[in-house]
């Protein structure tokens, strides 16, 4: 779907949420769900920042780090990609205290989800860096740049454009993963929905609203990343033309 189509669907989704939240059967759930949605957004934003940092660090370590650092990065990537996000969250929240490290549910949630998506992101970053043509590296050598300079000025800006679309998918994945934090007692959207479902049994109304809210959030992320993609591609094209 094009960016216009997506914006149309987002508008429609928001309109339906707006309409439903005015109806009698739905009205009572709106404040609780809004609180939950705020928590979901907060976790998503914090975990996204952590994921990007973890991904870039791990990818650079795996590509250019000395052997011990490289092995550490590979272990991190394989462990977090190889096990379930839910198991990781439980491990952080319930098992780590046994080893003397106690965390708030919120910290465990951000850490678990951020590191989980970061591990997938590391491979995305690595792939994007590798996909920069070899000639670019050779040119930086000819210009007598150090490796750090070459990475920062030449390679990463070009790799950045290539990694935006896969990061868009990962951010949506991240948003959806935040639903798991309801299982470590954090009051996000999924948690509020379950809680209200148990007290009121108005399942259809609650879960319809929740699905629509998640849909609106995903669409907003998709549209944002598409815009970013256009911007980045334009920069590269202008640079190539000049």
């Amino acid at each position: 779907m094009g960016i216009r189509g997506l914006a149309g669907v987002l508008f429609l989704t928001v309109a339906v949420i707006w309409y439903l939240s005015g109806l009698e059967g739905y009205k009572i759930f709106v404040p609780g769900l809004a609180q939950g949605a705020a928590m979901t957004l907060q976790i998503t934003a914090a975990a996204a920042v952590l994921a990007v940092i973890a991904a870039i660090t791990a990818a650079l370590s795996k590509l250019y780090g000395p052997a011990p650092l490289r092995w550490l990065a590979i272990t991190y990537i394989e462990v977090f990609r190889g096990t379930s996000a839910l198991v990781q969250l439980f491990w952080l929240y319930f098992v780590l205290p046994v080893f003397g490290i106690t965390m708030e549910a919120y910290e465990a949630a951000v850490l678990g989800i951020g590191l989980n998506i970061g591990a997938y992101g590391a491979e995305v970053v690595r792939g994007a860096i590798i996909s920069v043509p070899r000639g670019q590296w050779e040119a930086t050598i000819a210009l007598n740049m150090t490796r750090a300079q070459a990475l920062r000025r030449i390679i990463l800006p070009q790799a950045f454009a290539a990694m935006i679309p896969p990061w868009g998918n990962l951010f949506i994945e991240l948003l959806k993963t935040t639903a798991l934090v309801s299982m470590i007692t954090l009051g996000d959207l999924a948690f509020r929905a379950q809680q209200m479902n148990q007290t009121t049994m108005k399942t259809v109304q609650i879960f319809t609203l929740v699905l629509l809210i998640y849909l609106a959030m995903s669409l907003a992320i998709t549209i944002g990343m598409r815009v970013l993609e256009h911007r980045a591609a334009r920069g590269i094209l202008r640079a190539r033309a000049a």
Partner: peptide
């Protein structure tokens, strides 16, 4: 497909089981 892919699996499981 977009609808299914952009909402969490956990909510879909609840939806199918409770709704």
């Amino acid at each position: 497909v977009e609808l299914i892919r952009s909402t969490p699996l956990l909510i879909q499981i609840f939806f199918l089981y409770f709704v």
